[in-house]
Each structure stands twice: as C-alpha cells, then as structure tokens.
Design a protein around this nucleic acid. Structure first.
Lengths: 131, 131
DNA sequence: TTTAGTGCAAACGATTTGCAAAATA
DNA sequence: TATTTTGCAAATCGTTTGCACTAAA
C-alpha cells in the first residue's frame, strides 16, 4: 500500500516548512515554492501538505480566522494569535506543563486524552509597542 | 454605528445555541431553526452567528476537520475532539487551571495573553467501549 | 515498465455578499 | 419614516479531485 516515492516538489515544500516560523497558509507555501518550481500547482502543494501531515512530518493548525496554517515543527508546542496584526506565533510551554495540562484534563474527563493543542489569544509585543 | 435591532430569527438561533451542547455547525443551526422559521436562509444564520460571536454571546470553534462549530457557552472552557467518532465534547478544567496555563504561557511570552482555548485529542469513552 | 507524483482545470463545500423586500424602532 | 434585518441567489474562498502526462523506482 502506497510505496512513497521521492519528489523534488515535496522536498522543497518540506524544506520551506522546516526553515520558516511564519506558519504559512497553503497559498503562502505555494507562492514560495513557486520560486524554485515555477510550474508547480496549488493542487500539488495541498496534496503534499496533507501527505506530510498524515505521516507526521508537519502539523495543520486551525484558527477561527481564515484558512489553515501549516507548521514543520512537530514537537508538541502551542500558538498565539495576535488579535491586532493576525500573526500566528509559536508559544512554547515546557513539556512538563503540557503534560500537566493533559493530566488535569484527564481527571475531569471520561475518555482517553492523547494530545492537546492550545491557542492563546491577545496582543503581541510588536503591536503593544505601536499602540 | 449599528444600532442593533431585535430579530426573531436571531433570538431563535441564540436560544438554540444556549440550550444545546452539541456544538453545531452553521448548517445544523440552520436545520434546527428552520423548524420554527421555514423560510430562514443560511445566509441569515451565518450573519447572526457571526454577529453573536462578535458581541461575545457565542464562540466559534475551529477544528482541523471540517467547518467551524458554534457554542453558546461563553465562560472559558475547553473542548475534546474524538478521533474515532468526530464528536466535539465539552471538557471543563476549573478556572484556576485555565488561569494557571495562561500564567505559565505568559512567563515564556513577550506580549499580552488575554485568553486561551485548548483542544484535546483522543478517544471518547463511548468509542472506547465499542472497541 | 510499473507505480507514484504532477499540472491543469473543473468541482466542491463552507461562507460571504449585493440587492430589493420585510420587519423593527 | 428611517434603519436594520431578511431571503434569495450569485459570488467568493479554501480545498479536493479526475485525468492524461511526467518522473521515480
């Protein structure tokens, strides 16, 4: 079932995800990879982003505003959405804290908790400075 | 600026949101409210859901699978998404725990954290029983 | 040479929007 | 009466898919 083959396009997408911290949308990935592969199509980008997500080499982040973002950092970590500029930033809690949250939740919940993802809301330091 | 007027449709939408715990999609809200207002349109449902969300009387929940869900519970609380049946359930941490998470995050973050929303993943008790 | 991946364009589902008519203030 | 909200339909946005072709194994 599905012997995965190498593809230059997929490598490029993966490389971009792993070297940026901007949590790009599929379209932003497309525009970037297009610089190296002018003929690449948005469909290919979506197919590879989903594939990378499925095999655990990327993460999909959903926010209440607009399309999904993708993240090449696969270690558990969390995100912050600035209500002013809309940027999505990394926000690291140490592993112990993340586990502690999951443990606390498990106490109040009658099922199996495997992971969690927290989205923090507020205003980032850049926007605070400008106001 | 926008003096809000009463509307029967909006009341019905709001009432449904406040009395269900199913975290309905816009379409599910539409189908339910349609029982009382057979002519209501999906556009009206979306307009009111967004309006209620904007004035803080409802919450929009984004998950990595499919469309947004809406929630009439406005006190801070969290959610659990079952990987097997896809249901979105409430998961309450006590207020202290939520505040503690936000405090921990603030220590590692250079901006203002106002709130947070955690989505837990795993398998719900119903699905565990069936397997 | 067999199979997976690509580019393209059409299809899709969810959500938004313009507009004339209806409801609220 | 003045202004907001509605229903409808068309438009838009993000994403997926079928297909003939190309690249990798």
């Amino acid at each position: 079932m599905a012997a995965m083959k190498f593809s230059r396009q997929r490598e490029s997408i993966k490389h971009f995800l792993m070297t940026t911290r901007t949590h790009p949308t599929a379209d932003e990935v497309y525009l970037h990879v297009k610089e190296d592969f002018p003929n690449i199509s948005l469909g290919t980008v979506y197919r590879n982003l989903n594939l990378l997500t499925d095999i655990g080499e990327a993460t999909k982040i959903s926010t209440p505003d607009g399309g999904d973002r993708f993240d090449g950092r696969i270690e558990p970590h969390n995100h912050f959405l600035c209500k002013t500029c809309g940027r999505l930033l990394d926000l690291d809690l140490d592993m112990k804290s993340i586990e502690e949250v999951n443990r606390l939740a498990a106490e109040n919940f009658d099922g199996l908790i495997e992971s969690s993802s927290t989205l923090f809301y507020g205003e980032c330091s850049d926007c605070i400075k400008k106001s």
